[in-house]
């Protein structure tokens, strides 16, 4: 007897709509033209975009953006781990001070914090000194020379990120079964050793995905430091469009670069997550290449209606 498979008319209709929308998008991006100031030119001016995409000032801006992202995330994760451990400490003083830190830095906008570091510090404290509290100073520095706009930006982003990361790390730590800490203790491991070797590696599975989000978010948030006169990627494009008035093509340049780096990070995140999935899932998720190979294997002629085949055991190498 012939088997009639279930039809999915709405799936076909939705696919049709999407095909039309994609066609419109390609058309407007690539083929459409407009007349601006009497000359006919491509709507998105890809020529201008291409001209500035690898311009030296832009590349310099990218370096600053990446520097800020790396510094802020590295410092943020470090501060986050310290704060998370403090918050989980039985000492009320430690957990309380960590709570206050988080309350303060999460409770004020990062833009305001950035301005505070940039103008506030040198206004409130003309000199910064290292020495004994309430006693002698070993050496003193002028705030305005120490807190450059880059330093202010890095400080502001790091301290703010620390507050968010601490909550992510804390969630990761408390997700690890208590039995793990007990087993480690029963082997004579110290608290620090247990945290480093047993708890944090397992907490990573919970910590990595939101940290990936934070890193991607941080890359974009660095554009805020343009307001305290750091020339990062966004400010670099602004500087150019301020002189040649090609505002939109340069915004496109900035967007393309941000997209490129967030894409790279997404790929990186996938492999880091896969690394930390060892031992928790019996089968690691396939990498895109493995998935491609698998789908090619599956694309072979399918079995007929009544031919039941044993499921293909996927082997990854």
């Amino acid at each position: 007897m012939k088997i009639v498979p279930v039809r999915h008319p709405w799936r076909w209709a939705a696919s049709g709509v999407i095909v039309v929308l994609v066609a419109m998008l390609v058309n407007t991006l690539v083929f459409s033209h407009v007349v601006r100031g009497g000359t006919r030119e491509g709507r998105f001016q890809w020529g201008v975009v291409g001209h500035y995409l690898f311009a030296t000032p832009i590349l310099r801006g990218i370096v600053v953006t990446l520097e800020l992202t790396v510094i802020a995330m590295a410092a943020g994760v470090t501060i986050g781990i310290i704060l998370a451990v403090m918050r989980l400490s039985p000492s009320r003083l430690l957990s309380g001070s960590a709570w206050i830190y988080i309350w303060f830095f999460r409770g004020t906008p990062v833009l305001v914090q950035l301005f505070f570091w940039y103008v506030g510090i040198s206004y409130l404290y003309q000199h910064l000194a290292l020495g004994i509290p309430f006693g002698t100073a070993f050496f003193t520095l002028n705030s305005t020379t120490l807190i450059t706009s880059f330093v202010a930006g890095a400080l502001g982003l790091s301290l703010n990120e620390g507050a968010y990361m601490s909550e992510i790390v804390r969630a990761g730590i408390i997700s690890v079964d208590e039995g793990q800490t007990e087993a480690a203790a029963s082997l004579g491991m110290s608290k620090g050793l247990t945290l480093r070797k047993i708890v944090l590696p397992q907490a990573m599975r919970v910590i990595i995905p939101p940290t990936g989000n934070e890193t991607i978010s941080m890359l974009k948030t660095t554009s805020l430091v343009s307001t305290i006169s750091v020339v990062e990627l966004f400010q670099a494009t602004q500087n150019i469009s301020n002189t040649n008035y090609q505002v939109v093509p340069l915004l496109t340049v900035a967007s393309l670069w941000y997209l490129f780096f967030t894409s790279v990070m997404t790929v990186g995140q996938f492999y880091i997550e896969r690394h930390y999935a060892r031992g928790s899932s019996r089968q690691l998720p396939p990498t895109p290449f493995q998935r491609l190979r698998m789908s090619m294997r599956h694309a072979r002629p399918r079995p007929g209606p009544f031919r039941v085949e044993a499921p293909v055991a996927a082997t990854y190498d």
Binding site: Q180, A183, S186, G188, S190, Q202, G279, S280
Partner: peptide, 25 residues
């Protein structure tokens, strides 16, 4: 002190109901 407690625990083996093996190793 904490490190003395650790030293004492290291001399005593313990096996738990739910095994508590380290799953990432």
């Amino acid at each position: 002190k904490d490190n003395e407690v650790c030293a004492k625990r290291a001399e005593i083996g313990m096996v738990f109901q739910r095994f508590n093996l380290f799953p990432h190793m």
